[in-house]
Every structure is written in C-alpha cells, then in structure tokens.
Design a protein around this nucleic acid. Sequence first.
DNA 1: CTGAAAGCGCTTACAG
DNA 2: CTGAAAGCGCTTACAG
Lengths: 335, 335
Amino acid sequence: MRRASIKDIARIAGVSVATVSYVLNKKEGQRISEDTKKKIFEIAETINYVPNRIARSLQNNRTKLLGLIVADISNDFYSSIARHLEDKAIKLGYTLIIGSSDENAQKFSKLIELFSQQQVDGMIVAPVAGSEDILQKLMDKNYPLVTIDRYLKGVNIPGVLLNNREIAENTTSFLVEKDFEQIIYVGYDTKLPHLLDRQYGFETTIAESGKNIRTKNILVGLENITLEIQTKLEEALGKNPKNTALYFSSNKLAVAGLAYLVQNNVNVPEQVSVLAFDETEAYKLFPAEITYIKQPLEEMADEAVKFLDSQINQYSSKTKKITLSGELIIKKSIK
Amino acid sequence: MRRASIKDIARIAGVSVATVSYVLNKKEGQRISEDTKKKIFEIAETINYVPNRIARSLQNNRTKLLGLIVADISNDFYSSIARHLEDKAIKLGYTLIIGSSDENAQKFSKLIELFSQQQVDGMIVAPVAGSEDILQKLMDKNYPLVTIDRYLKGVNIPGVLLNNREIAENTTSFLVEKDFEQIIYVGYDTKLPHLLDRQYGFETTIAESGKNIRTKNILVGLENITLEIQTKLEEALGKNPKNTALYFSSNKLAVAGLAYLVQNNVNVPEQVSVLAFDETEAYKLFPAEITYIKQPLEEMADEAVKFLDSQINQYSSKTKKITLSGELIIKKSIK
DNA sequence: CTGAAAGCGCTTACAG
DNA sequence: CTGAAAGCGCTTACAG
C-alpha cells in the first residue's frame, strides 16, 4: 500500500505541493489563508499522512539520526549510558541508531561506514584500540563526532571523559590510608588509555605512599574474563586471605571477581575489602554492599549530545574535551 | 564540506551517472567494459566516496532501518535481547534504531510515529498496555511489525513469545513438589497479558495441586519497586520465615527482593527458597546462586528479525505467533 | 557497451 | 496569498 504523500494532499485540497509543504511545516513568512491551512490539516489527518523524513533529509542534508557505537549494548554500563543518550537525543529531535563493536576495530570500522551511509548527522562512539585512523578520517571530513568513556592517543577527537587518573588516585589513597597489607589491582590487559590511566593512577599512588604495601596487578584479556579472574584470584588470595583489598577497574571485572568471592565464602570486608569502578544493580545482591566509583552517566550523556549537536549546527566551540568527575560511593565492602 | 557523489565520479571518469551506478552496485545484465569498471572503482576509492543510502531509500522505498521499541534499554533483559537483535539485523543488512517506552502508551506512540517518519522498513516492539489502537493502525497499513516478549488482547499482531503460562505452571509444580508451607508470588500489578499468564499459571497450579499450601501474591506498581517490595516482603515473611518459597516473575523484581533478603540476613535456601524469571549476572553475586527461568533470547531475536524480514520482503507466511520455551536453570536457591 | 531522462517525496528561492 | 520549477543523490526502464 502506497503511503500518502504531500502530493495527495495537494491534489485533494486543490493547491500546490509547495503550499502544503509550507502549511505542514508551519513556515512563517509565507502567508497562507486560514481556510487553506485548515483544509490542509484536515486532509492530512483523514488520509493519515506521515511525512517522509527521508525525502526531507535528502533535501536539507539532515537526517536527525545519531549513530552510537559502544563496546557492547548488553553491558550494564553502556546500556545505562545509551538510555541517557536516548533521552537527551529525543529532546533535541534526534533518534539513536546503535551498534556494538565488541572491542574489534574491524567491526567498529564497519559500523562507522554503515552509519555514514545512513547519513547520520553525527556519531557518539566509545572508540576501540586500533580505530585511530578511521576516526582521524572522519575528523578530516569534518564529520560531527564525540567520543565517550574513552579517548585515543595520537588523535585529538572531541570527547566526554571521566577524570580516570585523578579518581583512581583519590580512591587508591582512600585504600592506602586503611593500612592494608596487600592491595590488588584487577584490570584489563589493554592499550586503551582511559584504562591505563586508572592503572597508573593506582600504581603511582601506591608507590608514592611510602608505605610498605604489597601490591599486584591481575590483568585479564577480553575472553573468558570470569574464568581467568577466578584462577588468578585464587592464586593471589590463597586459602585464607586477610587484610587485603581488591581494586576492580570495571563493573564486569568486579562482577566476575565478586562471584568468585561469594562462591568461596571469602568474607567481605573482614578478610578482603572491595572497591570497584562503575555502578551495577548486581552489587546490591552481594552480602556486603559494594563501595564503587560512580560515573555521572546522565551528565556525560547530556554533554555528549549537546556537544555533538553544537558541532552539527556549527555553533563554534573551541572545546575539545569535557572531563567529568567520578564519585566514590562508600558502602560496606571496605573495612 | 560537500560529500562526494556519484555525479563527481561520473564527471571525473567521463561517463554517465547511470554507468557509475551500475558499476558500483555490481548489476549484472548491464555489460560494462572492464576498463570503465576499474576506472570507476579507483575514482570512488580516491575521492573517498560513500554511497548515500538516503537517496537510494527514497528511490526504492527501503531504508534498511529497523525500529526497536523496548520498555527500557537499560534493563538487562532488553539490552540483552537488543544485542541479539542487533547481531541478527546486521547479518541481514539492517541497522537498528532504538527507543524506550517506559511502559507509557504515549511515549510508545510517539516512538512509532517517529520511526514511521524515519521510514523504517519494519518494527520490533515490546508493546505497552494501551497501545492496541496504535498497533492496529500500523497493521491496517500493512506495516511490517513483530512483537517480542509480550502480546496484547484484542489485536492479532505477529509476535515471538515465551510459553509463559506453561513454563509458569511447570516451574510452580516443581516448587509444589518440594512441600513448602508457603509460596509467595511476586509480580506486577499490571494488565499485560504475558505477565498475567505467569500469574495465572502460578495460581492455578497451586490451586490444583490439592496440597495445603499457603499462598499470597505480592503485586507491585512500576514506581519505587525496590521500596514497595521490601515493605511487602517484610510484612509477608515476618522476622523468622521458614519453609517458604518466593516466586519472582521478573529479573527486576528478583533483584529488588534478593537485595531485601541479603540485607536482612534471610538465609537462602534454608529459610526461604527462591525462583525467578529471566537471567541476570546479578544472580551470581547472591550467596546462593539463583534458580531461574531462562528465556531463549538469541533464538527469540533470530526469529523476530527473520519474521520481520519475511514480512518486509513479502515472503508469504501465514504464521502469526512463534512461541518458544523457557528453561528452568536449577541452582542452589531452592532447598 | 553506454547515456538521457524520469522519478522517489520533499524544500525553497523566486515570480506573480 | 499561492504556484511553477529546480534540485537533493540516487535507481532503472528504455533507447541506441
């Protein structure tokens, strides 16, 4: 069934398509008689007219589509931020189209290609390792682009970021003052700068504390996180750990690690204290509610969309990076 | 910066746009010299040509966009299914555009409107209460449409569903055989048929068991789930519950309920046994890993996209509903 | 083997 | 107050 077009309305109303277009878009300037307006609106209503944005897009070079590329939309962190992005985008008249990269530069690149073909007005991306060139190309074309959560070395892309290094330092200091014998950092074996910032923040703070704290990094790959963490934690903690703290650098890692702790009846915080990056509902089900670093997701989303919108509409803006602060939410998991 | 078009390639190559179009789309039938082909591909490469799908869409009435409306993309269940839908959609050449309805018929309706304007080729929706008319209209226009997770009374929309009633009956039987004194159903105060199916399945199975089991429904609204569940559970369980089972009809409800149990040191399964609908990573952090009903999300997503694709391409199909089976994953939370 | 031309459904500068 | 017409970037039936 062919869908009603502006032409149909024009024919029925006995006016030109131009007139219909003016009326439906409520253009001022053009003065059109109230009678004609009323007639046109009525006809549009009765024939169930839905404007074809595709046609409009072709004309004015704006699709009102925003591309969002995350690592994995089924990850709590990204689905939460996606939700906030969606809300903000809708407010500004945009719709979100989404894709998951799985930390794979090739998939990432295909999504970028796909989204450009779909003529999205701009993209919000969590860039993966190895996507520098692809993104640089996009920048060279002046394609509106904002990174979230992450940034890349060697390419200066507008982005909304967490103060990773700083918050890692502050929260590590917080642990250092508790006089643990051992503090273990659980992170990814990665080249992503924002994660390395967390790691370096942790390492330097421990080193500079002047205290005699045993420390260790457990770094895992992307595959089989759960299994890898469990074996490495087992090795690191031994049978009867005490006076130890675990510093998880993401919610995924924390969930995997906490599952190990609960299964092995490790007492938190009596034996092992826990601090984790990112929020997840799951923390509430653990016997000791988890102390975590909360990222201001809503604010990040707001800033990212606003930032992108300003690029799209060429509001001049010299800003390149927006850095927001994490917050330590202290619960029962640290003694 | 204007983006390169087919016209640019034609001008540079000294051929017509028609020829360029044929070559780039690898149309058979038209025989074009290898030389010309090669030249065109090279030029496309060097001027960084990206086809404008919008223009193509206008021509052939296909955007390769699929609309997805869920209740809330930040909910584990929906973000997981979204991920599977994304994967399947990409395989078939579609991109997903997403929206969250928040169980609000008006928001839902706005999203439908928005997506139609964007000319999506079809929609996959988790319909909300009160959206019958909107969806019926869409059906009347022959708009390709598939519901997931839910269905509505009084309007016959193609859909992919779980065998809610049946799996509720089977799993309730499983509990009944354990001879609990009390079994409490924790669900939503809702009109959504798929949730009522779960509730009725539970209720009738208990009633028909012939056993003398105390039972009770805790039904909560959508606002303040956590608070409402906690107060109602407190009331229902008392200080020292025993030989009791809780039947949670969704992951959200389960998470809220389990948070209450863990905070109040209720022993699972010694005092209270737990069974829940849906999967979530969170279950792993609870002291007793949770027995849950696993929905075949990947299969659902596969079926939904295939189903929609067949509607879009008019492969005749008389199918109206596809029902898939849930599976009880038995863990430690039931004594 | 290749091109001229119409058309998809809109918008908009211009004319009257 | 309203319309004729060009054009956005493609596709495709048709002609040669």
